[in-house]
Nucleic acid binder design. Structure first.
Length: 960
RNA sequence: GCAGGGGUCGCCGAGCAUGGUCAAAGGCGUAGGCUUCAGGAGCCUAUCCUGCAGAGGUUCGUGGGUUCAAAUCCCACCCCCUGCACCA
């Protein structure tokens, strides 16, 4: 076994035995409850889960070290269809799928066989998942664990839905879905062979009249164009039917008749015939009573909507092209007994005024794009472009009745509603593209009736949900408006279905609450599940009144005890535990859950809990990529949590992920980077334990003060970063920046045995502990500290330890070195001797004065000069000062303002002494003799007379 | 199509909200040196271009604009990612 693995197992066991992550209410301590959306158990946990949960764990561990009572619970989502589907595929002997289980999920053969039982499968993945979560070191309180099919959990969900229903958030209605006629069930995206992402579209049917009692329901997305109709198109070769539809006589395509049967229409086909039969007949516009002919249109697809299309050649490119065709090729009309002259007389009717177009936009766009005929693929493009343009900016002309002067966008909805009221319009759904079910059956649209919905359209509910958002923190902040947009956007959500695992709807036989609807407030269940498990509370005892008491404080525990048999103490303990932990303080997930789960969570809290129990914060992060691509089992780039930990170790896995991205950016998992990080950690171990072992010298030179001071900034930055869930920034500073500080100190010091360095390393380990807990525990134990670093106190920023003088001293060295290197680079020489000349004391006087004025924002050269001239000591140097002042001003603009302030505070420093103290270091660095002089030094070696160039914080340099 | 997020020096990625401190953090990679029996690791240095003195020049998706001054503000355009519902 590798050393890493040994260390990991050792600490995992120690944590578990010491129960340090098990959190109970403690009124003396402030609490933090963090949560991660429970993962769905139809497969193993993967690095995507790992990334998101690592952020939660880093936050939890950080808060725990800060002294908070931190609770991080975990559970498993079993609700829904996919688990069933997966199991069925195993049962069916689906080779491809079984191979994935075997090779990607690493399921042993003996277990695989048992996967024909979906619950067994879920239990297997749950067990594996728990081991993985433990092995990566997430600081979870396992006493609260559950799965969503546990009867006790289901009692909780029943309570939730009973409440929602009573409060009026659950409604009943109809809904169009993509439907597989063979499976007799909705066909979700994942169940499709063809047509992923395709959703039903609603057509308006305008019921044109053919004779007194027959309708031609023409399908359109643009019902406003009824005012511009010139004729009807019927495909002469397609099969049509005359049918009674909800008591009316309709003529529609054969396919349409079948479809309408599934859309809450009573359809009775009376006779079938070819479209040809209709050509040449005259129909009536039910609104304007105008009469128009039916013409042959071969482009009409009987498979789309009703197969009946009306023609608006002024605004629809296809219609214009088809009409033009007939007008130019009158011979085809002969077959239908239509007088070509009648067709030639048809003129487009313009009804929409739109910028950039004249009378007949369709005619113009066809000419502009050089579209030849209705078979030209560009016709489709033209249709879309024109539709978009007319919809957004088109204004209806005077011939549009009550809608005149309005934009299409404004009136569309009312217009449809009006037409329906007048009885001239109906509607039907159809799919814009073909959808084929996994079972190879062609899908259709079905309107499900008696569906149960969560009424997310409810304006008051929306308003309340926004209040929840307003009072909480969202990380990153930019996601906040997204939540608000989603709240606006959400409509009724079908919250129950008839198949799959889940909690039966308490009042609806045969309905099961679907996955995204049974996972909205379960964080509250964690708070009490510990008691339910420890006291083996029976599901039957968990009556709604029990939850009412626990969550709302309603009712009397003594009476409850009598009613359900849970004793008063236990009831009160549960109530207290809920009150202690709730609301949760952070919920973090990937951004894909923003438009659904996370927003649902907000809605349900708004509905069911008072403001004091509303979520405190939600974190959102990107979606993990693997080697630059989306991770997919089918793409062969699927990496499990277990696999990653085995290969790279827990700490490297966690940190590689966290260093990948923060905010909503997508992190990229690159195997090479992870192994680099793994070896970096090995180096870190050697580095740190070496220092810890040798720390003995009690010293307090400027270098120790510098190190201490630098460390304070790192502490501050890391603390602020993790607080805002900027885990990437936090880890970067904790790991790399701090490491660089330690290195600089060691270089300058030339030794590693100072106690101060050992102390700094301890602080360093503490800052790293939330990110790389195993390694830090191991090194912590080597420092001789008792107890776990996981619960050691987080380093606090200490203003008193900030030493700006020490920092500026090192800045001086760094600046001098970089100037020297720059010169060497330009000169392309190897130095034998370096001479530094520090500025004369009068220059400091000038420098500080200029600095002071600069900081105050009033650095005027002439005024400064006057002031200097008035000074007896400076008077003799006025010639030099004249040249110096502009140089100083320029140099100061390059300094950050906080450094300027520090320098002013420190006043003059003895640069010669500082450089002298770094003499050995500089010698070694440049591999040359180094001499330090003051500009005032009469005996200085200065053959090129460089010394006069010396400035405060910028000694002159001479190299030979 | 609608909505949200993005395009930065070989790569990954900070910075852009409060324009100057930005040739632009940090990591990775690459090159050179030190250390080492060797490999690895570690440590140091360099890494847009130019420059025989600490300097200058050209960069931050594209094209305009505002300003003494823009990666950062405004406008237009191009490209990429994510979500869009009965499904986790």
């Amino acid at each position: 076994m590798s050393q890493t693995k040994q260390i990991e197992q050792k600490w995992q066991a120690k944590w578990e035995n010491a129960h340090i992550f098990e959190a109970d209410p403690d009124p003396k301590r402030k609490k933090i409850m963090v949560t991660f959306p429970y993962p769905y158990m139809n497969g193993p946990l993967h690095v995507g889960h790992t990334f998101t949960a690592s952020r939660v764990d880093a936050y939890a561990r950080f808060k725990r070290m800060q002294g908070y009572n931190v609770l991080w619970p975990w559970a498993w989502h079993w609700t829904g269809q996919p688990l069933l589907g997966a199991s069925q595929r195993v049962a069916r002997g689906d080779e491809a799928y079984i191979r994935v289980l075997r090779e990607v999920d690493d399921v042993p053969e003996s277990e695989l066989k048992k996967f024909i039982d979906p619950l067994y499968m879920a239990q297997y993945y749950t067990n594996e998942g728990r081991l993985a979560v433990k092995s990566i070191g997430f600081s979870v309180d396992w006493r609260r664990e559950f799965t969503t099919v546990m009867p006790t959990y289901q009692k909780f969900i029943e309570w939730q839905y009973k409440n929602l229903k009573e409060k009026g958030y659950v409604t009943r209605g109809t809904h169009p879905v993509v439907w597989c006629p063979k499976d007799q069930s909705p066909t979700g995206d994942h169940d499709r062979q063809v047509g992923e992402g395709v959703t039903p579209e609603e057509y308006t049917l305008i019921k044109y009249k053919l004779g007194e009692h027959t309708f031609l329901p023409a399908a359109t997305f643009r019902p406003e164009t009824i005012y511009g109709i010139t004729n009807m198109w019927i495909n002469p070769d397609a099969a049509y039917v005359e049918a009674t539809v909800n008591g009316e006589n309709w003529i529609i395509s054969q396919e349409a008749a079948e479809k309408l049967k599934e859309q809450e229409k009573k359809v009775q086909v009376k006779r079938s015939f070819k479209g040809k039969e209709l050509i040449g007949q005259i129909f009536e516009n039910p609104l304007t009573k105008g009469k128009f002919p039916i013409l042959p249109g071969w482009f009409v697809d009987p498979k789309t909507a009703t197969g009946v299309v009306y023609s608006v050649p002024a605004h629809a490119p296809y219609d214009w092209l088809a009409l033009k065709d007939l007008q130019e090729k009158p011979e085809v009309l002969k077959d239908f007994g239509i007088d070509p002259e009648d067709v030639k007389r048809i003129k487009p009717i313009s009804i929409i005024k739109v910028d950039g177009f004249g009378e007949y936009p369709a005619v113009e766009i066809v000419e502009q794009m050089g579209i030849k005929d209705q078979h030209d693929p560009k016709a489709d493009e033209a249709t879309k472009a024109l539709y978009k343009k007319e919809f957004h900016s088109g204004v209806l002309k005077q011939n549009c009745g009550p809608y005149t002067g309005k934009t299409v966008r404004e009136v569309k909805d009312t217009l449809i509603a009006d037409f329906r009221k007048l009885g001239v319009a109906d509607s039907m759904y159809d799919l814009p593209e073909q959808v084929v079910c996994r079972c190879m059956t062609q899908c259709i649209v079905k309107i499900l009736s008696d569906q149960w919905f969560l009424d997310y359209s409810d304006q008051q509910w929306k308003a309340k949900a926004k209040e929840v958002v307003a009072q909480m923190a969202i990380y990153p902040d930019s996601a906040k408006q997204w939540f608000n947009v989603v709240i606006d956007w959400l409509k009724e959500w079908a919250c129950a279905r008839t198949t799959g695992f889940g909690t039966p709807l308490p009042w609806g036989k045969g309905w099961i609450i679907e996955t995204l609807s049974d996972s909205t407030i379960y964080m509250a269940f964690y708070t009490i599940n510990k008691h339910i498990k420890q006291s083996s509370i029976k599901p039957e005892a968990l009556k709604p009144e029990v939850f009412d008491y626990i969550f709302y404080g309603k009712g009397n525990p003594a009476e409850l005890e009598k009613a359900v048999g849970i004793n008063v103490d236990l009831l009160e303990a549960m109530r207290n535990e809920f009150l202690y932990w709730y609301p949760f303080d952070l919920r973090n997930s990937a951004k894909e859950l923003v438009p659904n789960h996370l927003t649902f969570c907000i809605f349900h809290h708004a509905a069911l809990f008072p403001p004091e129990h509303w979520p405190k914060a939600i974190g959102v992060n990107g979606m993990l990529m693997v080697e630059g691509k989306q991770m997919h089992k089918s793409k062969g780039n699927f990496i499990t949590m277990k696999g990653a930990v085995e290969k790279y170790g827990a700490d490297a896995t966690r940190c590689a992920l966290l260093l990948g991205a923060e905010g909503m950016d997508d992190p990229d998992w690159r195997a090479e980077n992870v192994s680099d990080l793994k070896s970096k950690f090995e180096a870190l171990c050697g580095f740190a334990s070496g220092i810890v072992a040798s720390a003995k010298n009690q010293e307090d030179t400027v270098l120790e003060r510098w190190l201490q001071s630098k460390l304070q900034h790192r502490i501050k930055d890391v603390t602020v970063s993790i607080d805002e869930l900027k885990t990437r920034t936090g880890l970067q500073i904790a790991l790399f920046e701090t490491w660089n500080d330690l290195r600089w100190y060691i270089q300058r010091k030339g030794s590693t045995d100072a106690k101060a360095l050992g102390e700094a390393v301890k602080v360093w380990l503490k800052m790293l502990a939330p990110f790389a807990p195993f390694l830090c525990e191991e090194l912590w134990s080597q420092t001789g500290e008792a107890g776990f670093i996981s619960i050691a106190s987080w380093p606090a920023f200490d203003e008193a330890k900030v030493d700006v003088a020490a920092e500026e001293q090192e800045n001086l060295i760094i600046d001098v070195m970089s100037d020297t290197s720059n010169i060497l680079k330009a000169m392309k020489i190897t130095p034998k001797r370096l001479c530094y000349y520090t500025a004369a004391s009068w220059k400091w006087q000038v420098y500080l004065k200029v600095l002071e004025k600069t900081l105050a924002g009033e650095a005027k050269i002439n005024e400064l000069m006057k002031e200097f001239a008035a000074d007896k000591d400076l008077k003799p140097h006025m010639k030099d000062i004249a040249g110096m002042v502009p140089r100083v001003i320029k140099a100061l603009t390059k300094l950050p303002s906080d450094r300027k302030a520090n320098i002013l505070k420190i006043k003059a420093v003895d640069e010669k002494e500082i450089l002298q103290s770094a003499l050995g270091f500089l010698k070694e660095r440049f591999n040359a003799e180094v001499s330090i002089y003051s500009e005032d030094d009469q005996k200085r070696y200065d053959p090129k007379r460089r010394a006069v160039m010396a400035m405060p914080y910028q000694p002159a340099i001479y190299i030979e």
